[in-house]
Computed example of a mutant assay.
Amino acid sequence: MTSKNAPESHKRPVNLKIRDDVRGLIDRAAKAHGKTRSDFMIDAARRAAEDALLDQTLVQVDPDSYKHYLAVLDQPPGGDGFERLMNAPKPWQP
């Protein structure tokens, strides 16, 4: 794995074929973030790759911990924070 501070010699080209409308959308988004098209696409692809790998992460726990986890999930929400949240003014209601 290379870092984002790797020397130029470690960079390799990637060629993509995309529709004009998608390219325009990417260009507008890149400009809004003050990035080049390449930098924007690399950042977006890296984030998507990290998310895809994190979604595949397996967490193993002992049976008692798993039972406790399921019991907590089965509990109805409650507490002061939950009450405040449910009673907070809603901006979409007059």
Rank of each mutant, 00 (worst) to 15 (best):
M1L: 09
T2L: 10
N5K: 11
N5D: 11
A6I: 00
P7G: 13
P7N: 06
P7S: 06
E8P: 15
E8Y: 13
S9E: 06
S9N: 08
S9V: 12
H10L: 02
K11R: 10
P13E: 00
P13W: 02
P13F: 08
V14C: 05
V14M: 07
N15W: 15
N15C: 05
K17E: 14
I18E: 12
I18P: 12
D21T: 11
D21K: 02
D21N: 10
D21Q: 01
V22W: 08
R23Y: 13
R23G: 00
A29Q: 01
A30D: 10
A30Q: 04
K31W: 07
K31H: 10
H33T: 15
H33M: 04
G34F: 10
K35M: 04
K35R: 12
T36S: 12
T36A: 05
T36W: 13
R37K: 06
R37I: 12
D39Y: 06
D39F: 08
F40G: 00
F40A: 07
M41V: 07
M41A: 02
I42M: 11
I42G: 00
D43I: 11
D43N: 00
D43Y: 01
A44E: 06
A44Y: 10
A44M: 06
A44W: 10
A44H: 09
A45H: 06
A45S: 10
A45W: 09
R46C: 12
A48N: 02
A48Q: 03
A49M: 07
A49N: 02
A49Y: 04
D51E: 12
D51R: 01
D51F: 14
A52T: 09
A52N: 09
A52S: 02
A52R: 13
L54A: 04
L54F: 14
D55H: 07
Q56A: 01
Q56M: 05
T57P: 15
T57Y: 15
T57F: 14
L58R: 04
L58M: 03
L58K: 05
V59M: 04
Q60L: 14
Q60W: 15
V61Y: 04
D62S: 01
D62T: 09
D62C: 08
D64L: 11
S65M: 12
H68D: 14
L70Y: 08
L70I: 06
L70C: 00
A71T: 08
A71I: 09
A71W: 07
V72H: 14
V72I: 05
L73E: 01
L73S: 05
L73T: 10
D74C: 06
Q75G: 03
Q75T: 11
Q75H: 10
Q75N: 08
P77M: 03
P77T: 08
D80C: 02
D80T: 15
D80N: 07
G81Y: 13
G81E: 11
F82M: 01
F82L: 00
E83C: 15
R84K: 04
L85Q: 07
M86D: 03
N87M: 03
N87Q: 07
N87S: 07
N87D: 14
N87V: 01
N87F: 03
A88M: 04
A88Q: 01
P89A: 02
K90F: 11
P91K: 01
P91L: 05
P94E: 04
P94M: 08
